[in-house]
Structures are given as structure tokens and as C-alpha cells.
Design a protein around this nucleic acid. Sequence first.
DNA 1: TTATCACTTGGAGTACACTCCAAGTCAAGC
DNA 2: GCTTGACTTGGAGTGTACTCCAAGTGATAA
Lengths: 129, 129
Amino acid sequence: MTITEVSKKYDLSADTLRYYERIGLIPPVKRAKSGVRDYDEGSCAWIELAKCMRSAGIPIEALIEYCALAQQGDETISARKELLTEERKKLHKKMDEMQKTLERLNYKIDIYEKAEVTGILSWDKEKDV
Amino acid sequence: MTITEVSKKYDLSADTLRYYERIGLIPPVKRAKSGVRDYDEGSCAWIELAKCMRSAGIPIEALIEYCALAQQGDETISARKELLTEERKKLHKKMDEMQKTLERLNYKIDIYEKAEVTGILSWDKEKDV
DNA sequence: TTATCACTTGGAGTACACTCCAAGTCAAGC
DNA sequence: GCTTGACTTGGAGTGTACTCCAAGTGATAA
């Protein structure tokens, strides 16, 4: 697959795909004799993984490290597990914070909805705004 | 309360507090005759709200707009509700993506755990890495 | 009264993650 | 052979959100 095809398939710009490869977020992509990138299944799997991880905000740096470890073979299995476990912990924490914010938003939207009818904003417990 | 006290209370740097006020993410804070900030309950409530929203990644711009609307009085209730509803929608979407990534991480960590015992990495469905 | 110290402002600098650009190369169609 | 267009590289530019700094001011302690 060409970079344009992969770009469409995963909805990532060609620039982003080249950037990801350049910084080592995915392993080097095979090239045709002309030097043009020719993505195989393996490259696509890496891109899909990178996209998934990035969409959840996993930092680029952690993914670069993971990619480097993966290219070093089976002696890095434990290190890779540790790395992912660490990121999972951070992700959990972020999701907890988002959940709290979501509940806060629900509460506020509810108050605003009531106010649209009654004209009265009645913030409950805290001195909210 | 002084900026230092508020900074400690909410674990935000004094620079961040001044920055938030400067860009209008919170309304202007009252000053002593000397010009030094003196945070009251209302200001603290705004800071707590800003911190909560920012911790979930709600963009600064949306919060600035919300703050501006809140200062204009009750005619902006509907606009504020719309704004928060929009951000809630985005937050939901982000959380869904994180949930997917979380499951992916769980799967991968599980495979790595098994590999630590068996020495064999067996990626299932997809050509995963 | 003089030094200290927390505070003030406006503006510059930093980190992260892209995103864009210029200059050049290569394969294919006219 | 020449043009077109997608690709290549290295490097510069952008947006978001802080974070730091220099120069100055005012209140308190010695």
C-alpha cells in the first residue's frame, strides 16, 4: 500500500504517517526500489495500534519506547508489559477524572435545564457557577 | 486568600492562576488596596471548576466562553447550557475511545503475562504487535 | 529606615504533537 | 523527450497550554 492509501484507510495525514515513522513510533516501513514507502500488513498493524493509543492520549514517548522494545525481540517482553501496565494505570486515572467531570457537567446541565423553565439558577451543595 | 494559599489549596501554580485570570477563564479576582489578589469564595469556586474541567481536557477556549457568558447574567442560561452540552458530548466520545484503548491494553498485557510464563507471544485475532 | 519578600505586570520561552513547505526524484502518459 | 503528479527528505512553522523571567511595588520585620 502507498502512503496515500494508508492515509485514507486510517484517516491520518501522510505527514503524520511519515512523522510517526521518523520518530520511531512505528518501525521502518519497507520501500520500493524508487524509495517510495510500501506498507505491508505489519506496518498497517503498527499504524492502527499507534492510532488507537494516541486517540486515548498515550504519550508519543511511551509508544516510541514500546516500539523500540518490540523490535529488540523476546527478551523485552517483561519490559513491554511493565510499560503498558504503567500507561494503563495513567489511563485509568484520566478516565476517573473525566468521569467526575462528566457527572459535574450532568449536574450543571440539569440545573440550567430547570432554570430555562423556572428562570431560577439554584446551585446546590457547593458555591458553583 | 492570597495567590499562594489558593495555589496550594488547588495544586495549581501561581503562574497558572494568574494566567487563567488574564485570559478570562475565571472572572477578575478582587484586589487589596496594594493591588494584590484577594481570592474570595466565588473566585475559589471558579478556580475549582476550571481545574475540574481542565483535568478532563475541556479546552480553554470553551471555558473562556462559558466564563464570559456567566458574567453576562441570566439571559445567557440557554447558551451556557448548549455550550456545556456540546462539551459533554465531546467528553463522552473521548471516554469511549479511552475505553477501547483500555480494553486493548488489557488484552496485550494479558498476552505478555502469558508469554512471561510460556515464552510464547500469541497475538490472537488481528496481526497485533 | 532599610532590607526582605511576596506580590504585580507584560512579554518571552517551553513542551508536545503535529503540519506545512521547499527542493528534489522517479514512473507513467502524451 | 517532456510534463505531470505522487512521492522523497530535512527543516521550519503552528496551536495549545502553560511556565518562566525581568523589572518594579508595597507591606512587614529588624
